[in-house]
Amino acid sequence: MTVDEKITRLQESAMQEARSKGNAIVEQHKKALTHVFDQHKAEALIQADTRIKAEKTSVKQQLGMANSKAALELKRELGAAQKRLKKQLFKEVEEKLSAYMKTEKYQDLLVKYIEKAVAYSDRGEMTIYVNPTDADKKAYLEEKTGFTLSISKEDFIGGIRAVIPERNILVDYAFKGALEREYQKFAFGGGMGSGR
């Protein structure tokens, strides 16, 4: 074998060994980079998953707060509407009551109230008051019941009040107190409160 052939063979052998070592180094480096990439990818996925969960939680909280705020506003509006409707309803009740107080049935009711008050007092000393708006009915009521009546200085809308001084008792068949009690007790159905 000639020197040139030896050199060529040595060169080829050296190149093959260099390629083999180079390929091994590249493969080793490639594995190391792939491992680093896989670790980085896994960490990035964990971070992304954590961020997504945090964003979902944040969105749920914001949605919950918005729902709570909307429900509170709706409840406030419902309460205001119920309050308006309640006032309107009781205004209509007062108008109907006013119309009723112009009927004979109302006069008959006053007679019954006076008779009840007298029966309660066992015909003892008492003062029976009629509302100032019923002053025109005083003579009729006195004739019908046989009792002297007084005109109240206080407007109690309608009905009668009787005072039994010896027993310190007020017999109250006045419409004003009854209306106020009903107004306080009145609540719209549906469980949303009294609308006061």
Rank of each mutant, 00 (worst) to 15 (best):
M1N: 00
M1Q: 01
M1K: 04
V3D: 00
D4F: 08
D4T: 11
E5N: 01
E5Y: 01
K6N: 07
I7L: 03
R9W: 09
L10N: 15
L10I: 06
A14K: 13
M15S: 07
A18N: 12
I25V: 04
V26Q: 12
K30T: 11
K30G: 04
L33Q: 13
H35T: 07
V36K: 12
F37M: 11
L45Y: 11
I46T: 15
A48W: 05
T50R: 14
K56E: 07
K60I: 15
K60N: 11
Q61D: 07
L63R: 14
N67E: 14
S68G: 08
K69D: 14
A71M: 12
L74P: 04
L74H: 13
L78E: 08
L78I: 06
G79S: 04
A81G: 04
K83V: 07
R84G: 01
Q88G: 12
K91I: 06
V93H: 08
K96S: 15
M101D: 14
K102I: 06
T103S: 09
Q107L: 11
L109S: 10
L110K: 08
Y120H: 13
Y120W: 09
E125I: 03
E125C: 04
T127Y: 02
Y129P: 05
A135S: 10
A135W: 00
A135D: 09
K137M: 11
E143R: 10
T145Y: 04
T145D: 04
T145S: 01
F147M: 01
T148G: 15
T148D: 13
L149H: 01
I151A: 07
S152M: 08
F156K: 02
I157R: 05
G158H: 00
I160Y: 07
I164A: 08
R167T: 03
I169F: 11
I169E: 09
L170Y: 05
L170I: 08
D172F: 02
Y173I: 03
A174G: 10
F175T: 00
G177F: 03
A178G: 00
E182R: 12
E182G: 09
Y183A: 00
Q184T: 09
Q184C: 00
Q184E: 10
K185L: 06
S194T: 11
